[in-house]
Write a protein that binds this DNA or RNA. Structure first.
Lengths: 155, 155
DNA sequence: GTACTTGCAAATAATTTGCAAATAT
DNA sequence: ATATTTGCAAATTATTTGCAAGTAC
C-alpha cells in the first residue's frame, strides 16, 4: 500500500527500484512483525523466487539507511521490521508471537531531563521499545485459561 | 567494588564463583561502557590470561540471566555491559566514546497507557535507552570548537 | 571427592564480499 | 547504452558445542 511511496523514496536518492527491493519491503510490511533476514528471504521469495540472501542483507541495509526499515530488538536477536517511514516512531513487540505495532506517543522530555541531571550526559536521542502481548495473543491466552478449568494439570 | 556482591549472587543460585567469571565481570565494570564479547575477552585476559572466548560467551549468558549484565544496543551491534545488578535500570550510551552510565528515573506509566490505547497491546515491559554525549566528550568537543576559531578548515 | 566449569578445537550459523551476468533507467 | 544491482559461491566473522582436563566447593 505505501509501497508506492517506496518507489519515490528510492529514486529520490538515486537508487533503483528493483523487484528484489520491492519484495523485501512488501514481505516486511505484510508480516507486520519483526523478521530475521532469513525469514525475510523466505517470505520475499514468494514474490521474487530467485532472490538471494545476500541481496536481502544489502536491501535491508539500504532500506534502513533511508529510514524505510527499522531494527527491533527482541532481547538479543536483532530483527528487521518495516516502518511506515514517517519520521520518529516506536514499537511494541509481542512477547508471544513477535508481532510488531507502532505507536507515536512519545513524551520523554521530563525523563530525559532527569536522566541528564543524573548522569551529566547531554541527551540527544532515545530508543524506546515496549514489550507486551498483542490483542490476538490476549484472546488465545484467555481461551487457554478456560481450558484450564476443564482439564489440564499445567505440566 | 560490587564484585563482592557477585560472589553471593552466584552462589545463591548454585553457581560457582570462578576466576573467569570474576574477570568478565570486572572487565565490564571497569570498562564502564558497552563491550562486545571479543573486547570483553581482551580486557578480562589481563586478569585471567588463559581465558577463552567460548567461556566469555558462557559467562555473559549466565551473568545476564542473573541480571548482573545487560545488553546495550549500539545501532545494530548488541554489546554487553555490566549493570550494578540493582533491579530495573536504564542506560545512556555516549555516541562518541561508547561510555555507558545508568540512571534510575523511569516514569513511563502515562506513556505505556497511551501506547496500550493506541495499539491494543497489553504492555508488560519496556526497554529504554538514551543516547547522548558524556561529560568527557562534551569537554573535548568544546575544546575542538575553540580550535576552530584559531585554524582548521573543517576538512 | 565430585559436580560444575573450563579450554581448546571443531562444528554451526551469520554476515560480507568478489565478480560476471542481468536489468532499471 | 550504461551504471547499478543481483546471484552465486567463497571468504569472513560470530556463536555454539563436545569432551577431556581442571577446579571450586
Amino acid at each position: 500500500v505505501y509501497v508506492k511511496q517506496a518507489t519515490e523514496e528510492l529514486r529520490e536518492h538515486g537508487f533503483r527500484l528493483t523487484r528484489q527491493r520491492l519484495a523485501v519491503l512488501t514481505a516486511l510490511s505484510e508480516a507486520g512483525r519483526g523478521l530475521e533476514p532469513a525469514q525475510v528471504l523466505e517470505r520475499a521469495r514468494l514474490e521474487c523466487p530467485e532472490l538471494g540472501l545476500a541481496t536481502v542483507y544489502r536491501a535491508l541495509e539500504l532500506l534502513e539507511s533511508l529510514g524505510m526499515v527499522r531494527h527491533v530488538h527482541t532481547s538479543k536477536s536483532s530483527a528487521a521490521v518495516a516502518g511506515a517511514g514517517a519520521g520518529h516512531a516506536h514499537h511494541v513487540v509481542c512477547t508471544i508471537c513477535g508481532r510488531v505495532a507502532e505507536f507515536s506517543t512519545c513524551d520523554l522530555e521530563a525523563l530525559e531531563e532527569a536522566a541528564a541531571r543524573e548522569t551529566g550526559f547531554s541527551i540527544g536521542a532515545h530508543f524506546l521499545e515496549l514489550a507486551g502481548i498483542c490483542r490476538e495473543c490476549q484472546k488465545k491466552r484467555s481461551q487457554e485459561h478456560s481450558d484450564r478449568k476443564t482439564g489440564g494439570t499445567g505440566k
